[in-house]
Design a protein around this nucleic acid. Structure first.
Lengths: 141, 141
DNA sequence: TTCATTGCAAACAGTTTGCACCTTC
DNA sequence: GAAGGTGCAAACTGTTTGCAATGAA
């Protein structure tokens, strides 16, 4: 997402464009999927060692509300964030913790069905599977 | 699940059958879906006021490992637990927090596809959607 | 100049752990 | 009697918040 769009997204809400916000967003964009807050913090601090962790959290909440990023509940204990993009889902290996993303086009169909069957306005959906990747499966034997 | 089966499940692992474990499991079984740890604690204490919260947590971990219950990541901040039963999924209302369960038979198909496409041994899957229930949708207008 | 935003430290919530005592087998 | 389980309090982890200082508009 070019800077211009971020500016607009913030502007519309009367929010200010700060270095911290631009930096956090940059980290998330470069980070290819599901970063935890403390990892975002770590990476962002390489560029701006003054950045505080609470700013990271506040920024993440802000971006979430703006719809710029999505919050995932991949594993226990903490959240992950990633930029909002083409819908994809997550496959979590219980052995090594690796997270594989996969597309599943008919997820939209499920969404539509649920909407109709339950009269629920669905704003987001996530399919999350856990199991063992080929490598960990081998090691378990 | 009758007591006999619980006993066996524990027995097989060399684990002991204690009042606390039976009590926690009973609460979960009666609790019809997704209880948070502190709610389980609250309910169990009505029967045994001596029960400690850490025992509840330890018991939940034990049951999870045994496959007697499942841990869900429905919302932020804390986990939910429910007895392992017929596969169902969750629809979370962002307005009132209500969680509606729904069945989705073709979830198994997705599972199978993912297994084949990714060579991933899938042990569990959850579809989680967020949105607004009819009531909250009305109120938002 | 004004008001949103930040950094810091302190508070929180949920969960885990060490240890002495208790219970199941 | 031995080993596993429990209760308690204290520790931990991830996240949030109050407040004074800072910086974008």
């Amino acid at each position: 997402m070019p800077t211009k769009n971020i500016r607009r997204a913030l502007d519309v809400q009367g929010l200010r464009v700060t270095n911290q916000r631009l930096l956090v967003l940059q980290v998330i964009q470069r980070g290819q999927g599901h970063l935890a807050a403390d990892e975002i913090y770590r990476r962002a601090r390489e560029k701006n060692p003054h950045l505080s962790l609470s700013t990271v959290y506040r920024t993440l909440q802000t971006f979430k509300k703006l719809g710029l990023i999505e919050e995932l509940h991949i594993d226990e204990g903490h959240h992950h964030y990633e930029k909002r993009s083409t819908q994809h889902h997550h496959l979590v290996c219980l052995g090594c913790g690796r997270v594989v993303e996969f597309q599943y086009p008919s997820a939209n169909l499920i969404k539509k069905n649920v909407r109709e069957a339950r009269d629920f306005e669905v704003t987001s959906s996530e399919i999350r599977m856990t199991g063992y990747c080929p490598k960990c499966r081998q090691e378990r034997e």
